[in-house]
Design a binder for these strands. Sequence first.
DNA 1: ATTATTGTAGACTAGATTAGTCAACAATAA
DNA 2: TTATTGTTGACTAATCTAGTCTACAATAAT
Lengths: 144, 144
Amino acid sequence: MKLSTKTRYGTRALLDLAINQEKGPVQLKDIAQRQSISLTYLEHLVTPLINAGIVRSARGRKGGIWLAKSPQEIRLDEVILLLEGSNAPVECVDRPDICPRSGSCVTRDIWTEMKKALDDVLAATTLQDLMDRQNAGTQAVARS
Amino acid sequence: MKLSTKTRYGTRALLDLAINQEKGPVQLKDIAQRQSISLTYLEHLVTPLINAGIVRSARGRKGGIWLAKSPQEIRLDEVILLLEGSNAPVECVDRPDICPRSGSCVTRDIWTEMKKALDDVLAATTLQDLMDRQNAGTQAVARS
DNA sequence: ATTATTGTAGACTAGATTAGTCAACAATAA
DNA sequence: TTATTGTTGACTAATCTAGTCTACAATAAT
């Protein structure tokens, strides 16, 4: 069960943005360069974050993107939900109606516990936490 | 992040086996029929379980498969590891060497926490637990 | 010994998904 | 007006998933 590169790159991009937004809008071009992601691909990663309202953007000269909320208000569970979708490892966890046995299926209970465990881990960490941890380590940089 | 059908079907097959093995070897044909899985596909699901030694088999008439250990000795983390592979959502969690920044990457720490959370959930449940839960519910049947 | 029955192994394939690229467009500041 | 920046969606190559198909190996019943 692997996260997509979309999620990994998107998370890195968001952390990069959080770190570099002090001086105003950050250009996608610069994030792409720092994170070694192609600009065209990065655009697709950022789109869902903008649509969801956790990132804002402006076009044209001096344009760029910035966080719509402070880093401590952005939890990773929101981020991963936008980039990757639900943490439910099986569809029936979120949509019991797709399987007639959902109400009594014992494996479904396990899949549900897995989802909750992931949600809990991700909800316990904010972008600010990642920034702090990165500052704590000398040359810590997200590369996953 | 979704589990493959291989894992979902394999888990169901194993639970089916645990429930039906009282009267000796269970034939793949019968598991396939009860669980609505094609026989040829089921064979592939069972192979890794046999190779890992948690299921044993015999060919020919009166052949079939059975659990090599008691259901309470078979934890779900073993099962999912065999069917799905590691719970690491990113490769670098298991193999830090593939990325030069693994030692200082702040997102890797999160991916590592996710893996641990999944491992903990799955290690806390055995096949016997699933059997007990199924017996507790009236017509509970695994269908995921 | 022969045969029907069962599991084993691996090549193969269709379809879905992922990880992107490319081109045209829209908005803004200089 | 123009250069610069983000937006959108079509498109594609490569990979992965979910299987099927064929030949084979071992065993029990006859």
